[in-house]
C-alpha cells in the first residue's frame, strides 16, 4: 500500500511534467527550447548514474564512457542508415555490450569500490584519447568519418519512425527528449519497486547477507551496470540529436566529474535528486559561461567539496528529512515510503 502511494505520487508528478513539456513550445521561445532539450538529455544521463550508484551501489566514475559510446554509435549508424530508428537502438545496444564486457571483468573479479571507480574513470580517459586520435580518412565506419578531435558534424537528427523523410522539428525533438526523460524515470521507478529492485538494494546494503540469502550479487550488479550503460547510451543518442554534432569532449574528464556532481548534490538513493542536481548545475554552468570572472571548473569543484563535507546526502534526501521532521514535530508524520540509504 505504501509502495502504491509512492508510485501514485510519481505518476501524478510525471503527468504534470508531461503536460508542461508538451505545452512548453507555446510559451517558451526556440532558444530556450533548445537549451531545455540538452538539459533533459543530460538529465537522462544523470538518471543512469543515479540508478547504478544510488540503488546498485556501483561507484562508476566513468559513466561518460557509455554516454559517449552511445553518442558515437548513434552518429555512425545514423549517417550510414540515413534513418534514426535503428541508430537509436544501436546506441543502446553497443554501450550495453561494452558494459557487459567491462562489468564482467570488474564485478566478477570482485574488486573494491575504490578500484571500480578508478578503472571506470580510466576507461573514459582512454576512450577520449582513442577517439581523439581517429582523425584522417583511414578511420571511418561505412560512410561515417570519425574525425578525431574535430568530431563528426552534420549528424542526421531524429526522424519519424519508419519515415526517414520526416525530420522532427526542434520543438518535436524537445517533446521526444522530455517525454523520454519521464519514461526513463518511471521505468526506473517501476524497476526499483519490482523484486529485482529490492534485491539490488539488498545487495547494496549488505552484499554478504544477500549472497547468503541465495542471490548471486555478481549477476545482479552486472545487470544493474548494463542497465546503466543502456540508459547512458540512450542519453548519448538524445544528446547528438540535440546538436547534430559529436566530438571527443563528451568522453572528457570534465563531463565525468559533472555527472558525479549532479548525483552528489541531488542525492544518492533517489531518482528525482539526480535530475534536480543535473538541471541546477547545467543552468549554473550556462550562467558561469556567460561571464568571465570565475572558471566553471573552479566553481564546480568548490561545490563538490562543500557538498561532500557538509551535505553528504545531497539536496533531495536532506529536504525530505527536513519535511519529515517537521511533520514528526506536529505529530502526524506521513508513512515513511522512502528507502533508507546508507551514506
Amino acid at each position: 500500500m505504501q509502495l502504491l502511494n509512492g508510485m501514485t505520487g510519481a505518476l501524478i508528478g510525471s503527468a504534470i511534467a508531461a503536460v508542461g513539456i508538451l505545452t512548453a513550445p507555446l510559451y517558451v521561445d526556440l532558444f530556450q527550447i533548445m537549451q531545455l532539450t540538452v538539459f533533459a538529455a543530460m538529465a537522462v544521463l544523470a538518471l543512469s548514474l543515479g540508478f547504478i550508484w544510488g540503488y546498485g551501489g556501483i561507484l562508476c566514475f566513468g559513466q561518460t564512457s557509455f554516454f559517449g559510446l552511445g553518442a558515437y554509435t548513434y552518429a555512425v549508424a545514423a549517417i550510414n542508415f540515413a534513418d534514426s530508428t535503428p541508430a537509436i537502438l544501436l546506441a543502446i545496444l553497443i554501450p550495453v555490450i561494452f558494459a557487459a564486457l567491462l562489468g564482467y571483468f570488474m564485478i566478477y573479479g570482485g574488486i573494491s569500490d575504490v578500484y571500480l571507480g578508478v578503472i571506470t574513470l580510466t576507461v573514459s580517459l582512454i576512450l577520449f584519447n582513442l577517439v581523439n586520435s581517429t582523425a584522417g580518412d583511414f578511420y571511418k565506419i561505412g560512410d561515417a568519418r570519425l574525425g578525431g578531435f574535430n568530431g563528426m558534424p552534420g549528424v542526421p537528427t531524429f526522424n519519424l519512425p519508419g519515415n526517414p523523410g520526416y525530420i522532427l522539428t526542434p520543438e518535436q525533438a524537445w517533446m521526444v527528449t522530455g517525454i523520454a526523460l519521464i519514461v526513463v524515470y518511471l521505468g526506473l521507478r517501476l524497476l526499483i519497486a519490482s523484486s529485482f529492485g529490492r534485491i539490488i538494494i539488498a545487495i547494496r546494503e549488505n552484499e554478504t547477507r544477500a549472497a547468503l540469502l541465495g542471490y548471486d550479487p555478481r549477476i545482479y550488479k552486472l545487470i544493474t551496470f548494463m542497465i546503466g550503460g543502456a540508459i547512458a547510451g540512450f542519453a548519448g543518442a538524445l544528446y547528438v540529436n540535440w546538436g547534430a554534432f559529436v566530438s571527443p569532449t563528451i568522453f572528457a574528464l570534465g563531463l565525468s566529474a559533472q555527472i558525479i556532481i549532479w548525483v552528489i548534490i541531488g542525492g544518492r538513493g533517489t531518482l528525482i535528486g539526480p535530475i534536480i542536481g543535473c538541471l541546477l548545475l547545467q543552468w549554473l554552468v550556462t550562467e558561469i559561461g556567460a561571464q568571465q570572472a570565475f572558471d566553471a571548473n573552479f566553481v564546480l569543484g568548490a561545490i563538490l567539496i562543500v557538498f561532500v563535507l557538509l551535505v553528504p546526502k545531497g539536496i533531495a534526501p536532506t529536504l525530505r528529512d527536513m519535511v519529515m521532521s517537521r511533520f514528526a514535530e506536529r505529530g502526524d508524520a506521513p508513512p515513511d515510503v522512502s528507502v533508507k540509504v546508507k551514506t
Binding site: 566529474a257 570565475f294 571548473n297 573552479f298 569543484g301 568548490a302 561545490i303 563538490l304 561532500v308
Partner: peptide
C-alpha cells in the same frame, strides 16, 4: 576530485 577541478580552474 573536487579539489582537482578547483586547482585546474
Amino acid at each position: 576530485w573536487g579539489l582537482s577541478l578547483v586547482i585546474v580552474g
